[in-house]
Design a protein around this nucleic acid. Structure first.
Length: 825
RNA sequence: GCGGGCGUGGCGGAACUGGUAGACGCGCCGGAUUUAGGUUCCGGUGACGAAAGUCGUGGGGGUUCGAGUCCCUUCGCCCGCACCA
């Protein structure tokens, strides 16, 4: 007896068990098929999944199921980005060991993810905190070291005083630590670096090949790499200061050299420090510059300030022409050489500075087709905007009349031939904003850097046979800092080379290292001898479709792109671009509620809708509260919805359907209970409609009747047009449109059933051709909706008497002759 | 400042290379069913109009037989980067 309502609570676990037992989702079973690798950014095991995860993984699952149906061998794995600070913080507060905390969270989240019915290959599960994983990462580190991609150098680092660790430049936002929010201090430390700058050009060029990435992300990376072509140029000092007799600057505008009015150096520039030694006032100014914040507000409001060092620089083309040397607050030590020459007429900052210190300005470039009288100013104080466009050179001696490009070339060519202190005075240089990636972190819960420091031999790699260097379990978190540093038994070892007493490197790797190669590990997740076999990498990489949040547009994605190249150069034969297609999904947002005592969670709120609009009331006492803006789900605003609650009351299919419908996947989707109910109704409707269709459809396996009548042909057209449209929409990742089209198809089928029922054809069996068309329509509906709502699809499929599992059924193919529109004049 | 995205009913949003604007859903209105429903089913729903019809894709202009879509111009919102020489 067919149940009137679809019972998700019984059906969902049943089908998940069936899939698992049949190992439907394990990759590599049929390697003759073409491969398709779909990957969603793996989660941090915080303990609970949130709606963002549901959305992210539902999208990936639609793609995985769709591709599987299209005949691909699909790799769709899942794992855990399991190292990181929260585990240590939890350890400090809750007295639980980070490992215990992390693995418990993984278990809890895994159960939640499983309840969503995702078509994941769990046999490939990895956690970055497993020695099985991080041991291979240590191997990679040593491979990179051998390949010259790892460096150890003393450098100024960003020190987070709250988290007691070093941060990469990418992890400093507005001068504050990205996690702690603490003001970052500068410290001089010896650190391990990955030489990502060696790959700057390649990483930049590679962006052009990524035509399935969002333009926005490619641009963000391009800006981050920050390539600029220019000239390194040395100014001789009129009189030496101690040993120093020159200043080197970097410029992208050597053409404006005859418009130079001053040279400016950063407050941290060695020359500034030297000059400050003899001048208390200059020293005070240098100190002041240090304290100016680098926040957005500070930069916008900061005046251009400077201080004359008293030094004078000689113009490269005219030794009788001296330029004052200023320390200036707008010159950055960590870009270029930390020194510039200022051309006020053609650079806004230089103009502001020049006006403040009365340094003058000479216009040396005039746009073409402009009346000189309209362009040339009598006094530079009349200049409001520096002209940085194209034109021809004026007031520039031998450069006069040349274009900007020609003048750049001319100046570079001349200065490359000019000698200054035994070397060419100028040198063409491509400069990048990108810095080397400092990976040392003074934390416990991370991948140990596999190095032993020996007084005689220096830093010695841990021999391959001793990998993995495992984290010790017996550590304490009763004081700040790195517990590894306070663990003598672990720390003190003998040197692998000379056998003398030595100590282990106690720093661990930045957790971004862990996530920079996990996509590669998934191809061969349990390989105990190497990160992954060449065969496995060759079989599966690159990832065909990667899905995740825009927040990783720079860090994670750039590091991963770097790692793929580094692994290639270390002999793993990886392809350069790890992610062929990238999709950045929008957030799940929810309206907020505020009562007299602050934010109220949706679970405590009852919504009443009427002609006066929607109103919110507290369930507890019935008092009315206000409805606020729709915002990103967050604990602070209490506007979160727990996926578990939704799955409990509506089932996984409903949750999946809703996060995929309504909004385009790259935009935010507003979660609302009304919307969830809409999805719920459709899941129920699928079941009901399948029953109705089953009543008028031919039995499974009925061959196409020779004679197709008009009514049947119309129905087949409806079916095949739906196939074509839904297929196209899923391929284009327009899941919202795909679902809309499926609902439309369902509406059309309802109408068709009504029609035949009214016409009386249904009772006692419809005619053969129509019964066949209904059979086709019913199966098609189930097949099309299966990637989104896989459980109910299986239930309907079984009810229709379909062969095998929907999860294994091939995707329907649209008949072109049925898809073409009838001509309308 | 530089860059990216967007502007369509009460709301989220459809509309392929120009071809019936508003698919699909939410909400709302009406009806039905039920011992019982915040969760079921059916119908209606851009605006104005009694109707025929007219007007409608941020504003203005243009190309075209035909424009949400193409061109010019203008207004507004969101996001990212930012003293990078």
């Amino acid at each position: 007896m067919r149940a009137e309502r679809y019972n998700f609570a019984a059906a969902e676990p049943k089908w998940r068990k069936t899939w698992e037992e049949a190992q439907v989702f394990e990759a590599g079973a049929a390697s003759k098929k073409p491969k398709y690798y779909v990957l969603e950014m793996f989660p941090y095991p915080s303990g609970r999944i949130h709606m963002g995860h549901v959305r992210n993984y539902s999208m990936g699952d639609v793609i995985a199921r769709f591709r599987r149906a299209k005949g691909y061998d699909v790799l769709h794995p899942m794992g855990w980005d399991a190292f990181g600070l929260p585990a240590e913080n939890a350890a400090m507060q809750g007295k639980r060991h980070p490992a215990e905390w992390t693995y418990a969270n993984i278990e809890a989240m895994k159960a939640q993810l499983k309840s969503l019915g995702l078509s994941l290959d769990w046999s490939r599960e990895i956690a970055t905190c497993d020695a099985e994983y991080y041991g291979r990462q240590q191997q990679l580190f040593l491979d990179f070291l051998r390949a010259g991609i790892v460096d150890r150098k003393s450098s100024k680092v960003n020190w987070d005083p709250v988290d007691h660790t070093v941060l990469a430049n990418e992890q400093v936002i507005d001068g504050r630590g990205w996690r702690s929010g603490a003001l970052v201090e500068q410290r001089e430390l010896t650190q391990w670096f990955f030489k990502i700058t060696n790959y700057a050009e390649e990483l930049l060029e590679g962006l052009d090949t990524l035509d399935r990435w969002p333009e926005k992300v490619r641009l963000m990376q391009r800006n981050w790499i920050g390539r600029s072509e220019g000239l390194l140029l040395r100014f001789a000092l009129a009189a030496p200061l101690g040993e120093a007799r020159e200043i080197e600057v970097f410029t992208t505008r050597p053409d404006t050299l005859f418009g130079a009015k001053f040279v400016a150096i950063a407050a941290d520039h060695p020359l500034a420090k030297q000059a400050a030694a003899d001048s208390p006032k200059l020293a005070a100014f240098v100190e002041e510059c240090r304290h100016i914040g680098t926040s957005v507000a500070a930069i916008e409001t900061a005046e251009k300030k400077g201080f004359d060092t008293g030094l004078r620089a000689l113009h490269p083309f005219d030794a009788s022409w001296t330029l004052p040397v200023y320390v200036a607050n707008f010159v950055l030590m960590d870009y270029g050489t930390g020194a510039i020459f200022g051309c006020p007429a053609h650079d806004q900052r230089d103009l502001d500075f020049s006006k403040a210190y009365k340094l003058g300005a000479t216009q040396v470039i005039r746009p073409e087709g402009v009346d000189p009288d309209d362009f040339i100013v009598l006094s530079y104080l009349e200049l409001v905007e520096a002209f940085d466009g194209d034109g021809r050179l004026i007031n520039s001696r031998f450069l006069d009349g040349l274009t900007v490009a020609e003048a750049k070339e001319e100046v570079a060519a001349r200065l490359e031939k000019t000698d200054l202190f035994g070397a060419p005075q100028g040198k063409r240089k491509v400069n990048y904003k990108l810095r080397d990636w400092g990976v040392s972190r003074q934390r416990y819960w991370g991948c140990p850097i596999p190095i032993i420091h020996c007084e005689s031999c220096g830093p010695v790699p841990v021999p391959a046979k001793d990998l993995p260097v495992k984290l010790p379990q017996d550590v304490s978190f009763d004081q700040p800092g790195n517990p590894l540093d306070r663990h003598p038994a672990w720390k003190n070892v003998s040197c692998p080379t000379c056998g003398k007493p030595a100590r282990r490197e106690t720093d661990t790797m930045d957790t971004f290292v862990d996530s920079s190669w996990y996509y590669a590990r998934f191809t061969d997740p349990h390989n105990a001898g190497e990160p992954a076999s060449k065969d496995a990498l060759a079989r599966w990489l690159p990832v065909d479709q990667y899905i995740g949040g825009i927040e990783h547009a720079i860090l994670h994605l750039l590091y991963s792109r770097f790692f793929a190249r580094a692994m290639r150069d270390a002999g793993y034969g990886l392809v350069a671009e790890p992610f062929q297609g990238l999709f950045t999904q929008g957030m799940v947002v929810h309206e907020t509620y505020k009562g007299p005592d602050g934010w109220v969670s949706p679970a405590e709120v009852r919504i009443e809708a009427g002609e006066g609009g929607r109103r919110a009331f507290l369930i507890s006492d019935g008092s009315e509260i206000s409805i606020g803006d729709v915002e990103k789900m967050s604990k602070s605003k209490k506007n979160t919805v727990d996926p578990d609650d939704i799955i409990q009351s509506y089932g996984a299919d409903t949750a999946r359907l809703f996060v995929l419908s309504d909004s385009p996947p790259d935009r935010d989707v507003i979660w609302s209970d009304e919307g969830a109910q809409g999805a719920w109704r459709f899941v129920q409707r699928l079941w009901r409609l399948t029953g109705e269709l089953g009543r008028v459809a031919a039995p499974a396996g009925t061959p196409t009747p020779a004679d197709i009548g008009e009514r049947a042909r119309k129905l087949r057209q409806v079916t095949h047009r739906a196939i074509a449209a839904v297929t196209e929409n899923i391929e284009g990742l327009r899941f919202n449109s795909a679902i809309a089209r499926i609902r439309e198809f369902a509406n059309e089928l309802s109408a068709a059933v009504d029609e035949v029922t009214e016409a009386g054809v249904a009772e006692g069996g419809v005619v053969e051709d129509l019964a066949f068309a209904f059979r086709e329509a019913a199966e098609t509906l189930v097949l099309l909706v299966a990637p989104m709502t896989p459980h109910v699809a299986e239930e309907c499929w079984a009810d229709l008497g379909g062969a095998g599992l929907v999860a294994r059924a091939p995707w329907p193919v649209a008949d072109p002759t049925l898809v073409v529109q009838d001509l309308i004049s």
